[in-house]
Simulated scan of single mutants.
Amino acid sequence: MSFVDTVQMLELRTKKAAGLIAMLRKEKAELQERFDLVNTHNAELEEYVEKFTTSNKLIEDSIANAMENLATIEGLDDIPLMDDAALELEAAEGFSVGDSNGSDEIDLDILLDESPSL
């Protein structure tokens, strides 16, 4: 191989290397953009989680306060309920303690018929 051939091959390899470096820089810039976007999204999600946790704590505190207020009302448990409300309350009580009627299926038509209209 002559000196001229060696120089031409070196020039060709240099051009290939420069092209590869340019391609890698472009890919790095694209990846950096995606990384920045993910970081921004992550920060938004962290803020959302913090707000949700705060809201959840406020709701829990409000429910606890309401339960304490209800507990101070004497004779509240002695007030009879209307028949439908008593059945619903009994079903809710059974559901909350783990009793069930054995069926996991819900008839949406009946549920929609029994729901109050909005």
Rank of each mutant, 00 (worst) to 15 (best):
Q8S: 15
Q8I: 07
K16M: 08
K16G: 06
A18K: 14
G19Q: 12
L20D: 14
I21M: 11
M23R: 12
E27L: 08
K28S: 14
E30D: 14
L31P: 00
Q32C: 02
E33A: 10
R34N: 04
F35W: 14
D36P: 00
D36T: 04
A43R: 09
A43K: 09
E47D: 06
Y48Q: 10
E50W: 07
K51F: 00
K51S: 02
K51N: 07
K51E: 02
T54I: 10
K57P: 00
E60F: 01
D61V: 02
D61E: 11
D61F: 01
I63E: 10
A64Y: 02
A64D: 03
L70H: 05
T72C: 05
I73V: 08
L76D: 01
D77F: 03
D77Q: 13
D78K: 10
P80D: 00
L81G: 05
M82N: 15
D83T: 03
D84G: 01
A85E: 14
A86W: 02
E90Y: 03
E93M: 13
S96H: 08
S96F: 10
V97M: 04
V97G: 01
D99M: 01
S100P: 02
N101A: 09
N101T: 07
G102K: 00
S103N: 11
D104S: 08
D104T: 07
D109V: 02
D109Q: 09
I110P: 00
I110D: 12
L112N: 13
